[in-house]
Design a binder for these strands. Structure first.
Length: 303
DNA sequence: TGTTATGTTGCCAT
DNA sequence: TATGGCAACATAAC
């Protein structure tokens, strides 16, 4: 669920509904550890009567910035959800924490698998996180050159390296599979052994699949919704993710997509379009350099 | 009914 | 330091 496009979709849906609002109460419901080492009283002491001055995102982390310079840091992990509803609405399933706002609405955090966290943090913690995470892949400053530097001398396989949040901030399992397919790279290639041309393809592919996910309000595989309950529509545009399990045809060559395990993660690839061996170095352009076209991702539905 | 997989990250061992 | 494996948890699907 929540990779960069999904978290950004949540941010955009939350922001207009909480900006300028003041937190008037905190309620802790099912899973107490959702707020880390705080208790409901220590957390309340820090956030009640504070107002929300901004909603920001870094990688897959969300921040509600408060008027005293501190912040509420939210990570959705696998199944976390933010829900904004009128106070009188009954609790949603797996609801663990509620911030009551001064206009009669609740900002609620729900999480089926209890991996997500909502932590009150000082400004310095935000700074530390910012320094620990890799660059934002959609930022203008994220160039192919910058990507090349991040991959330089890495001896691990490409997919786990791209999932490492200290290499790039915000990529997860779905968008890595999608980007590797578009760039025609096998997930088991050694990250530090890509040619400059391959890095350029990968850079374009990463930005393309993330932008597309964002344009479709995220990928809803099973549970993802934004804060208003809307689901993303990007699932219908996925090229490989989820298609390997049932061997659906590659949108490019028609061969069945395969599902393998790389770094303990389910991985979806086209064995023909994403060759395992690095290309023979050639002078000038070669068919190997072709990127899989962005457009024909959606297969025609059979009548 | 038991086994396996699931979008993430942090901790531990090598 | 870099890399790989697994646990944290609840549920659905096979």
């Amino acid at each position: 669920m929540p990779e960069l496009p999904e978290v950004e979709t949540v941010r955009r849906s939350v922001e207009p509904l909480v900006l300028g609002r003041t937190i008037v109460a905190v309620r802790l419901e099912q899973f107490f550890r959702v707020i880390g080492d705080d208790t409901v009283s220590t957390l309340s002491a820090k956030v009640v009567n504070r107002s929300i001055v901004a909603v920001s995102r870094r990688g897959k982390y969300l921040y509600l910035l408060l008027d005293d310079g501190t912040a509420i840091q939210i990570h959705l992990r696998m199944t976390g959800r933010l829900v904004l509803t009128p106070r009188e609405e009954p609790p949603v399933r797996f609801q663990h924490l509620t911030f009551e706002l001064d206009n009669g609405t609740d900002l609620r955090f729900a999480d089926q698998r209890k991996f997500g966290r909502v932590l009150h943090v000082p400004a310095v913690a935000m700074q530390e996180l910012h320094e620990r995470l890799g660059p934002e892949p959609l930022a203008q400053s994220f160039s192919a050159n910058r990507l090349a530097k991040r991959l330089e001398r890495r001896m691990g396989r490409l997919k786990p390296v791209l999932l490492d949040q200290s290499v790039i901030g915000g990529l997860g399992n779905i968008y890595v599979d999608e980007a590797l397919f578009v760039a025609r790279l096998h997930p088991c290639r050694i990250a530090g052994e890509l040619t400059p041309r391959e890095i350029q393809r990968l850079h374009r592919a990463i930005r393309h699949v993330l932008r597309q996910g964002l344009a479709n309000n995220g990928t809803t595989v099973s549970t993802f919704q934004d804060a208003t309950g809307a689901e993303g529509t990007n699932a219908q545009h996925l090229r490989v993710y989820g298609r390997g399990t049932i061997g659906l045809p590659c949108v490019r060559c028609g061969r069945p997509i395969s599902r393998i395990v790389v770094g303990g993660r389910g991985t979806h690839i086209c064995l023909r379009c994403q060759p395992e061996a690095p290309p023979v170095e050639l002078i000038g352009a070669s068919p190997q350099d072709e990127m899989i076209p962005f457009a024909p991702a959606v297969l025609k539905k059979s009548p």
